[in-house]
Design a binder for these strands. Structure first.
Lengths: 189, 189, 189, 189
DNA sequence: TATGAATGAGCCTTCATTCAT
DNA sequence: GATGAATGAAGGCTCATTCAT
């Protein structure tokens, strides 16, 4: 299970991510993925045991790469405000940015993941949300946001997730501006 | 298209709503629906032209009955605060309450609706969101919430929608309490 | 089994004949017939035991009404030549004339008739072909056509039947002219 | 679209031709064809996009192989009389000979061909009929048959087509004898 | 690594037919 | 005579998956 970004497997995951996001997991066929990758459908099963394994790989990529990016952004942030802002910016760029299909699949195709595969993904998700929780707690301690940070985390993530349903990059707002505006709504005044 | 709550068609819509919510539209088969209704799969097509028509009927039920309930709640509310609260309470009860599967389907199965059927549903959804917009504008004028009400509407709805992913009614929080707490997060202080 | 031309049953047979001719027996549904007759599909089964009975009724109408017309035309014909001409004219008018769908169904849907129903139709067909045979024998005796009348009967009927595949009434030839021309090809010279 | 006679696709076409001829296209199921070929019904769709494509392939085989045979027979014919005879012999052998189901399907299942697929088949049919027209014109010029060759072509083809309805190879007449007798009826005397 | 061919279970849908009202 | 609702068998087709080459 190579994680090298250049490996054939990773390329397939990225192709699948885009298809799953655009048409849904159930409506995307193994043939679609293979065709987009320039191979026969049977060949995919050399790389993945079955279709669900592709889905899980997409989701794992989506959540873990976002976590990684958030980690880096937090490391570079100078103060609590910047750390808070990183939450919104990283999340939205991962969700709405170019070629960033994997996280969206993680959010909207959960029901297609078998019981067996969920725990592994939950671990990854919890790791990501733990970063959020930690920063929100810091921000609450600094008086930036309200104190009910557990619920705050969930509502904020819900707000951000939902943006895929209505945000259009052709509109007047850039992703960065949107991140700032949504953060502003969460700040105490 | 009888809207009488006792009609056979409406009964089928309710049964389908539950299946679509629990297993997803694509994973729910026409046979599943028929079996749950105690009939043969072919019989369904006496009531609906095809499977998608069932989905559309479920969605239309979900959004229009929620709109109706919100309308009634707003009519009975005495002041702006109560009207604001109605938004959260009605939405969450429609989403998380007993036997209330239809609205959730509306939110999470949009991609399975054909281009042809979307406009009709968009009209219903816009009607619902117009109520939200109106009450949020009133609340902003009264200083209860922040002024960016268009974005506020979208983020709040996102927050509420997401609750289906984590809220468990066996937990410590009732749906009403959750509504109050989420509202509290949105209030200026 | 009323044969009165005004009866409801006869009306249904005529409606079915047109549908069977235009779209084929297998492709025409009982619902199509019922709709064209302004009733529900279930109601048809008051008039006919099953779909095949409709087909048989259409075929019986087609062949027996043509036989009847041929009988009348032969009775009025003054000489052998006129009797010979009657064969071609009656057959083509029955096949290509307005509202004359039934005979064509008889020719092209034979395979859909069950073994059980065939003998009855064969009797009707033989009665019709017997008229042909008789007139052809007279014509051969008079030196109008060649002597191999049994084969002649079959090839001539084949020629006429095939006209439904290529004859267009919008073309330059009337049905009567076509009948004359085809007959001319069969005459000795 | 391999035309090699040994290819699996061609084998399936031949199997389908026989079924379509014996029971009709509409009454022959995809499962019937698969069973006759010793495979599962789903496997057929690896070779053909849909059922209609099988029908079109059968028809194309029927008409083009007959055209090919006629071309060869004409090339070997020494004089006009032999060329004229080739028309009848090739056509009847293709229609009534052993394992020759495809041409009959072409003649009797035309209504099941979609509008989209017709032009391609019409081209093939016209190519065949052009050979007929050419030879009939030569024969008329030589005084062998009557001058109205366009109508003659249609009536003769109709006569030959119809033979499938009544010819039984167990009878007293061989296919070759029948061809000669039908030709004799068309000759001037 | 990849392909070509096939599998087999399942899916949505159709449709002749039935029957209580 | 006719309807509305349903049946149930079957039909064309899809698709994840397998496997010899």
């Amino acid at each position: 299970m190579s994680l090298e970004p250049n490996s054939r497997r990773m390329e397939l995951v990225r192709i699948a991510a885009r298809l799953f996001r655009d048409h849904g997991y159930e409506r995307s066929t193994v043939r679609d993925i293979a065709t987009a990758a320039g191979m026969q459908s049977g060949s995919l099963f050399y790389h993945f045991r079955n279709k669900e394994e592709i889905l899980v790989a997409v989701m794992a990529l989506g959540i873990s790469s976002t976590t990684e990016q958030l980690g880096e952004a937090l490391a570079q942030a100078g103060n609590v405000e910047q750390r808070l802002a990183a939450l919104f910016h990283v999340h939205l760029h991962s969700l709405l940015g170019e070629n960033q299909a994997a996280l969206e699949v993680m959010l909207y195709e959960w029901r297609s993941v078998s019981e067996a595969a969920r725990p592994g993904l939950v671990v990854l998700r919890d790791r990501y949300e733990a970063l959020w929780q930690q920063v929100l707690d810091e921000a609450a301690a600094a008086g930036l946001v309200k104190a009910n940070t557990r619920l705050l985390r969930r509502t904020l993530l819900g707000s951000l997730h939902w943006s895929v349903q209505w945000y259009r990059k052709e509109g007047s707002l850039s992703v960065a501006e949107l991140a700032d505006e949504i953060m502003a709504l969460a700040l105490r005044d």
